[in-house]
Amino acid sequence: MKRVLTVFLTIVMLFAIAGCSNSGTTANTPQKPAESPKAEKIRIALVLPATVDDMAWGQSMVEGLKAVQKSMGEDKVELATSEKLGNAVDAGAAIRQYATQGYDIILAHGSQYQSVLGEIAKDFPKTTFAYGTGFTTGPNIFAYDPQAQEGGYLLGMLAGKMSKSGIVGIVGPVESGDAVKYNYGVQQGVAKAKSDVQTRIAYTGSFNDIVGAGNLAKTHISAGADFLTGSSQQAVGALRAVAETEGKYWLSTDMDQSSLAPNHVLASQVYNWEKVATKIIELRKQGTLGGQRLSLNLADGTIQFKYNEKLADKVPAEVKAAIEQAKQDIVSGKVKVELPKK
């Protein structure tokens, strides 16, 4: 017993010593906001509500930032990420820590971070903060807002024109935010393409229940849907369920999910976060630390509509042409995709 205790005690001591020697260095670094925003290396921190590999909202941003890093040079951009901070308490601590450590740009990638950013940003006037989906800005806060309905509209048209059963199914998470915008866009697109094609929406009531999403997709299919779509990180569950049945297609949003089911993902709405992040970096270099609402849309290419190349020949030329026309109309402002008004 005594010997065991001695061993344990020794380990504790070792840890304590290691702790003391290290805490000396860590304790001194922080508490100093970024000195010069014009520093050569730009440091970007990302706070995610879900995971970095969710094949949706989170991963699309991670890959966008990696692309920025690649194009600007590994030595010019430093990236740090914290994930699974769905609750604003932990996210707030993470954001403040990043700000204290002198990160130049802090991206809080969720609509739930609006309040907490507003509070922290005041204490770090030289740091750039950005969050979305949102609209409230501050002197050093950007808010970004993907017009998910625009890509949804084009995907809806595609589904409406190509559906054989006349039923398009949406597997929704929680009826709010981007999911509503996207679903609303899909509905309008389907209706535009063919008035007698139905759009059916069902929700799981969760953002990350992939089993539930898969099950809703199966239910949609057994009730006749042959084109399905849906947003949030649970969408991959629905996608996988679609991939089990021949002749059923999935339309993905946020990012291109065709790698998961190359024979079933027909087209995608892709958010080009690289462009958004680059814009924020440029604005910061010019001295604009925030205060702008950055809209992601088809017009400036921050939202892209992509066919899955492997399946592109399944889409008839006239359908492609009609969608291209609709895209031009949205870009030129001739067609306005509505948003729900309560």
């Binding site: 739930q112 309040s115 989906t133 609209f135 009826e175 709010s176 509503v180 309560k342």
Partner: peptide, 22 residues
Amino acid sequence: LFLIRGPLIDPKEVSYGTGAPQ
């Protein structure tokens, strides 16, 4: 979730079209 996305949602979230549930 129903209350914060529906009856009690921040009216600004609706008018700006962002619709975040809060």
